[in-house]
Write a protein that binds this DNA or RNA. Sequence first.
DNA 1: AAATTTATGTCAGTCATGTTGACATATCTT
DNA 2: AAGATATGTCAACATGACTGACATAAATTT
Lengths: 184, 184
Amino acid sequence: MTDINFSRGPATPDSQAASGTTPGPRAGELRWDIIELLFFAYRDFVGDADQELEAFGFGRAHHRVMHFVYRYPGLKVADLLDVLRITKQSLGRVLKQLLDEDYIIQKTGNNDRRQRLLYATPKGEALVAKLAGLQTDRITRALRDVNPEGVAAISQFLRAMIDRDDPDKVLEAIFGTGTRKSKE
Amino acid sequence: MTDINFSRGPATPDSQAASGTTPGPRAGELRWDIIELLFFAYRDFVGDADQELEAFGFGRAHHRVMHFVYRYPGLKVADLLDVLRITKQSLGRVLKQLLDEDYIIQKTGNNDRRQRLLYATPKGEALVAKLAGLQTDRITRALRDVNPEGVAAISQFLRAMIDRDDPDKVLEAIFGTGTRKSKE
DNA sequence: AAATTTATGTCAGTCATGTTGACATATCTT
DNA sequence: AAGATATGTCAACATGACTGACATAAATTT
């Protein structure tokens, strides 16, 4: 009854992309396949965390802040703004809640006392780890039948999808590009 | 001057994931690497379209609607609701604009005259193709140095990241799962 | 020492996009 | 004829973005 004639009109013939080693579309054609897979994959990927967050009265914005603060301890407010690419007013709102509810703490910078270095509290760490666990489960499941070369290709692909002009502190850490102050 | 001590405290030692064939984290560890790569990759991926859309006074919501209507001509409103996972009130707002501005047209269903089948107009097709072109450029760039097996792994990974319980019409089309009415 | 710049915070208003709940209409199914 | 379904719409609200203006403290420059 709920039926529709799925004509796939303008969709170009890259529809056979389901079998083993799929030939990509011919040169110059659009990657509708990857475009749509990215949409659905990301939707379900963030969906894992969304559900958990609801129970805490938090949203995706809180997750992103907590995630990067936990992963890169001592991140400055300005660094976070670069990473998240939002305005300080937007960040201020969620950061205030996370500070008030003791998921994150601020420490005044040693060298520059204007800076507020951010750190996750144990409470914050626990939540981030829980959310990362859910997402890791999905990733692990998705990688189960992929060999090491395949995993390398996936990692390379995702890296190559990221803009590298004007990289922020976190991207520099991920890519290890040039001017890092190194460390231990 | 704008410097920070990037201690990478809690970050587990999967930090060497830059070299060729990267060993994944040990069993039970979290995939911080993929989690963060997905975040940045998707951010920049949708960023391509965002810029273009601004010039048209549209947002991501409009893009998603136009994309799926173009790709799956004759999509019903209910199908679109399933795919986008939003309420009809939310969809109604953007759909109304796209209809008013002649990017999409409605045709009454043949069998069921209650249905409004959606189709992209030439104007709509042009915009969708333009946006897909931008995103395809990024994808093509990212796949440039990936061999066919690698591309297959990437495709398999993205597919496996998607929830398959209660798949909508579009997902059924993408995965070719079971009850399709087939045709031509 | 004074002036300027930087890092951060905050107030106020707006916009895009999501939500719930209620209800209307046309059409199909029973 | 009654009920279910597909769609549309009104109203109110929440979240998370935005711009613009302004305040404070601390560092840097002159």
